[in-house]
Amino acid sequence: MKNAKTLVLRTAGTNCDRETAYAFEKAGSVTDLIHINRLIGKKDLLSRYHILAIPGGFTYGDDVASGKILANELRFSLKEQINAFVRGGKLIIGICNGFQVLVKMGLLPGITGSLNVEATLGLNDNGVFTAKWIHLKTAPEKTHCVWAKGLPGILDMPIAHAEGKFIPRTGSVLKRLRDNGQIVFRYTDSSGTAAGPPYNPNGSVDDIAGICDPTGRILGMMPHPERHITPLHHPNWRRHKGEGDKLGTGMQIFRNGVKYIKDNF
């Protein structure tokens, strides 16, 4: 496939749509910003795309719980289309609020399938919205997530959320996440070591920052890769001039998604 097509989903309160679309375009994808009302109104629209991106924001004000109302809407209004999209081997990425949506609609972790809710993203342990740069490590277990190929050992990225504390429903869900290689990103210190708070900024169980589904094609993560796609995004680009592996590292995630489509479709 020459053209990978990405749909960046918008609705009331979405606010990282433009920069997410830009990242996909920069990665070589044809990208459209589509409002959910259009997707619901035109049932075959989703099938024309290869990648569905649910960007960050505060959909419907994050009222009740972050991502909950949009998750509910997708579950009840677009269930079949999304199931078909996933069955067709296509890709989904949820960033920040998008991750919350994927978890709350049951698409992630997706261990048992059929949109069962197996985890949640709860209020940060510090109780407030927190914006800061953190270090991420691709998990020590091997992940087969297609979005995570060829990433450097440690990635710097900003988080900006109030409800990002990953909580699996049970201990066995966590075990299966580990065993399946579904844990894609963990919060660490700058050396890549698990170090608890404040390196784990929200109290996530097992320092989990991002997970994929068992197929590795659906990725959800709290940190914002689209906010670190050029060296100038990094808070210390002035210090790290010339250290290419540190700067702009979020871009690889988008390249991976687009390359996967180009290779497989």
Partner: peptide
């Protein structure tokens, strides 16, 4: 105060309100 504000959204920030290796 600063940490409660999203200063990165829209992807345009190139000199942030807090600086240094430990931000």
């Amino acid at each position: 105060i600063i940490r409660q504000y999203d200063h990165e959204v829209q992807g345009g920030s190139v000199l942030k309100p807090l600086v240094g290796p430990d931000h």
